[in-house]
Structures are given as structure tokens and as C-alpha cells.
Design a protein around this nucleic acid. Structure first.
Length: 103
DNA sequence: ATAGTGACTGGAA
DNA sequence: CTTCCAGCCACTA
């Protein structure tokens, strides 16, 4: 099985609008369990304007992961709000918004 | 080749 | 709640 960026990007592209997935979850679906960081790398590599809905990937705590660019974090939160996702004290309720493939 | 770093995570203190 | 840490491994210097 292939576990390159394309594989990760393909899975992220399956996350429905108004839903989120965690880095670890994407790693599992990509067949590389416990390699959440690799998913973070794949997101970092995405060119601006990519069709991949990278904004729907959040960390296991339901928060936007810290990165070098605070403005980018704010933009991600904004994009998610536009999809109808509600933040509560800086966090997303995973019970409510976590993507559950097939179910 | 080694060492440090990081869009992560789960467990321990 | 907060830190700290080991495991994970691609990437960079």
C-alpha cells in the first residue's frame, strides 16, 4: 500500500463539508497508524489554493493546531465557521462534528 | 552520516 | 486544568 502525500490528500478530500477529522484519524485511514505527524507534514506541503479541504483537519483535542502562522490559524477557524462549525472556547465538539466514515 | 525540529498523540505526574 | 515525555518519522541543516 502507498502511503505518500497523495494518499493522505485523497483521504482528506473525502471529509464532508461541515465535518472535521483528526490527524491521527487520517493517519489510520491512510494505513499508517500512530503517524499523525506525517499527516501534519502533508498538510504543510499543500500549495495555497489547493482543492484539498485541509481546514477540516484538526488535532485530537478539537483545536486548530499551532503552526508558525497565527493568521493562518485564524483563517482556518473562519473557514470552518463558514461551513457551519461552531467553536466553543476555542474548541470544536468532536462528538458533534467528527467525520465518521461509512457511519 | 548525525542532530534538531515539528499543522501529533496518549499516558503520566 | 498544566507540564512533561516517549514514540513516531520526514525534513532540514
Amino acid at each position: 500500500m502507498k502511503n505518500d502525500n497523495a494518499t493522505i490528500h485523497r483521504i482528506v478530500s473525502r471529509i464532508p463539508r461541515g465535518r472535521v477529522a483528526t490527524y491521527g484519524q487520517i493517519a489510520d485511514l491512510a494505513g499508517i497508524p500512530r503517524q499523525a505527524r506525517r499527516v501534519g507534514y502533508a498538510m504543510r506541503r499543500l500549495p495555497e489554493g489547493s482543492a484539498v479541504p485541509w481546514q477540516r483537519v484538526v488535532n485530537a483535542s478539537g483545536e486548530i493546531s499551532k503552526r508558525g502562522d497565527p493568521a493562518g490559524e485564524a483563517m482556518q477557524a473562519q473557514m470552518l465557521r463558514l461551513e457551519g462549525i461552531v467553536f466553543h472556547r476555542g474548541k470544536i465538539s468532536l462528538d458533534r462534528y467528527l467525520w465518521r466514515p461509512k457511519g
